[in-house]
Amino acid sequence: MKKLLTTVAAGVLAGIPIAGLTSAAHAQETLTVGGYGGSFETLMKELVIPQFEKENDVKVEFVSGNSTENLARLVAQKGNQDLDVVILDDGPMYQADALGFCAPLADGVINADVYDNAQFSDNAVGLGYVATGFTYSTEWFEREGWEPPSSWMDLTDPKYEGLLVVPPISNTYGLHALVMMARLNGGGEDNIDPGFEAMADKVAPNVLVFEPSSGRMSELFQSKEIAISIWGSGRTKSLADTGFPAAFAYPKEGAVALMLAACPVVESNVPEAAQAFVAYMLTPEIQERIADAMGVGPVNAKAEISEDLAAIVPYGPEEVASLVSVDWDVINPHREEWTQRWAREVER
């Protein structure tokens, strides 16, 4: 509404006729989307937004930031949001939805071709799948005569001492590792102690560094300081695209799903455009573009991707169904507590 009032005021000062004011105000309708920076921002600005603007006669502004930053933006601007659509990782999206920042999805936004496990709630929907598992140097493994990693318990294998990286728990990949180690040692999200014990006593001795930065992780592989890490299928693709001999391995107990997700934000000035944008992101054409640029598996069953990409990312109904989901309703209330505990016990 502020944007519209500003346009109208400017028109009055310029002496534009009433008809001209209506046209100018309509042309200035703006949809503000918050999402990831880097390659995702480039994708949005070059391959997604221009077509949407043309088809829907609306201007789109893109605000870049990681999931934590954009969730904090929603919290800080409660009651006066500047975002109309927000794109977050699944964990922060569950938080955003629980805190009441997501508006109900309109009928028809989620089409019949979207996989069931991409449908978060009545207010949010997944845009793409990333699998959390093993990234490893094929060159290193071939030289040593090692088989590709095949189990989450391989994190405890002494041969990886000083050659392994696990992101910290502040990073979703590290959190997934903690949950899976808990599950495989008699616990789970509601009994996390076995996970902490396994990470501290059996995994940490193998870890060179608990690295949160994707850029630094890539450097560690490329400088041949590490042979293996817990990472995402999309990140593995990006590393392989540089020419580095990287491969992704799915643990036999299941790779954990990390999903990109979107929701229309409450109290938007352009609610219809916000709903249309989410629906647009779920079309096969845009799903294919997101998959290719970001290395994520499409949530739309009709999206088609290359064989090379399909070998890395979760693709097709069988692989999508095999992904392991974590219980964010249990995790999120304990996230801060677990983060402090990780610093004391695992990265000590």
Rank of each mutant, 00 (worst) to 15 (best):
G35H: 12
G35F: 10
G35W: 08
Y36G: 12
G38I: 03
S39P: 03
E41M: 13
E41W: 02
L43T: 11
L43I: 14
M44I: 07
K45I: 07
E46P: 14
L47S: 15
V48M: 05
I49R: 03
I49N: 02
P50Q: 00
Q51E: 15
F52K: 05
E53H: 06
K54D: 01
D57H: 15
D57A: 15
V58W: 05
V58E: 01
V60S: 11
E61T: 13
F62A: 10
V63L: 15
G65F: 13
G65N: 09
T68W: 13
T68D: 15
E69G: 12
E69K: 10
N70Q: 15
L71A: 06
L71K: 02
A72R: 11
A72H: 12
R73P: 00
L74T: 06
L74A: 07
L74N: 01
L74K: 08
V75G: 01
A76F: 12
A76G: 05
N80Q: 13
N80S: 15
N80L: 10
N80I: 10
D82Y: 13
L83T: 02
D84G: 12
V86R: 04
L88W: 09
D89T: 10
D90Y: 06
G91T: 07
Q95N: 08
Q95Y: 04
A96G: 09
D97S: 09
D97C: 04
L99P: 00
L99G: 00
G100V: 12
G100C: 08
C102R: 03
A103F: 04
P104M: 02
P104T: 03
P104F: 03
A106G: 04
D107Q: 13
D107E: 15
G108I: 13
G108P: 09
V109G: 05
V109I: 04
V109T: 08
V109Y: 01
D113P: 00
N117Q: 14
N117D: 12
N117R: 15
A118I: 09
A124K: 06
L127H: 05
Y129P: 10
V130L: 15
A131G: 14
T132L: 13
T132D: 12
G133Q: 07
F134R: 01
T135R: 05
Y136S: 03
S137L: 03
S137A: 06
T138N: 07
E139F: 02
F141H: 05
F141D: 01
R143E: 13
G145H: 04
G145R: 04
W146C: 03
E147A: 10
E147D: 11
P148R: 00
P149R: 02
S150Y: 03
S150M: 03
D154C: 06
T156I: 12
T156R: 07
P158F: 06
